[in-house]
């Protein structure tokens, strides 16, 4: 399916999703409570079969945290991006997609480590790189007293 077909197909399944067509991938914005339902549908629907999650990134967008899922279907060859965001920036929580794509487990641990996003139902949510005394360095309000990174 090409981008417009994808957008139409998903738009019918999830009317609350905001779908924009980009130069590279179609982007689906979904409220966080609908995220798991959408992801499951994306993976299991025979016309979509997004079975390969190739990137999971988290961003700090100053009033909320956003999580971006880059998906590809190895069967149909099309790609899509799902975006979802947490309501609370200081104590962000979102559902884990670890059960849907096991590769997400490590990426979510990284996001938890660097941005402090808590993933519900993650089986093993521990910090990955840093130890517990660190803050969350990729948050925009992170200050490093040792001035490791200059801004």
């Amino acid at each position: 399916m090409n981008q417009t077909e994808l957008a139409d197909y998903i738009g019918i399944l999830f009317p609350e999703a905001g779908i924009t067509l980009g130069s590279q991938f179609p982007t689906i914005e979904i409220p966080s409570e609908k995220l798991i339902a959408l992801c499951l549908k994306m993976r299991d629907d025979v016309n979509l079969t997004f079975d390969y999650l190739f990137c999971l990134s988290a961003l700090d967008l100053s009033d909320h945290m956003s999580v971006v899922y880059h998906l590809e279907s190895t069967k149909h060859g099309h790609c899509a991006v799902i975006k979802s965001h947490t309501s609370n920036r200081e104590n962000p929580v979102i559902d884990s997609v670890n059960d849907i794509w096991p590769t997400a487990g490590f990426h979510e641990r990284e996001a938890f480590d660097l941005l402090g996003i808590r993933f519900n139902n993650h089986p093993d949510l521990r910090r990955l790189f840093l130890d517990d005394s660190w803050g969350f360095p990729l948050r925009k309000d992170y200050t490093d007293p040792a001035r490791i990174v200059e801004r």
Partner: peptide, 19 residues
């Protein structure tokens, strides 16, 4: 850039090691 994320191959490959 506002944010840069590298999806590195070794990261995901390592995750499968236990499996």
């Amino acid at each position: 850039p506002y944010r840069v994320k590298f999806r590195s191959p070794g990261f995901s490959n390592l995750a499968a090691l236990n499996h």
